[in-house]
């Protein structure tokens, strides 16, 4: 799955879990929390949504990997590849 596709997935999930967030102009290399006023509960919702949609398990210690869209793509790429291959 391409990086852009992963970023779109994340933005799509953010639009669902945080309906007030303005997701049209998000910069890839800036922390999501700083651009979108997301709190730790929102990140938890993202984690739950990724599990629901793609059966991806993200351990608590690795939540920081979801900080920016770029880091999401790098971190989730292999995980998504593994589940889509299975």
């Amino acid at each position: 799955m391409g990086d852009q596709r992963i970023k779109d997935i994340i933005l799509d999930i953010i639009a669902v879990v945080a309906p007030d967030a303005e997701v049209s102009n998000v910069k890839s290399d800036v922390r999501l929390r700083d651009q979108l006023d997301l709190d730790s509960m929102d990140f938890l919702d993202i984690v739950m949504e990724l599990r629901k949609r793609y059966k991806i398990e993200i351990p608590k210690e690795e939540y920081p990997e979801l900080a920016t869209l770029d880091s999401c793509a790098a971190y989730l790429g292999p995980k998504l590849a593994a589940v889509t291959a299975a």
């Binding site: 509960m41 938890l44 984690v47 739950m48 599990r51 059966k55 398990e57």
Partner: peptide, 14 residues
């Protein structure tokens, strides 16, 4: 409640 539900969900999925 939500934070712990996330953990329970993870276990149930496993």
């Amino acid at each position: 409640g939500v934070i712990v539900a996330n953990e329970v969900d993870s276990l149930c999925c496993q």
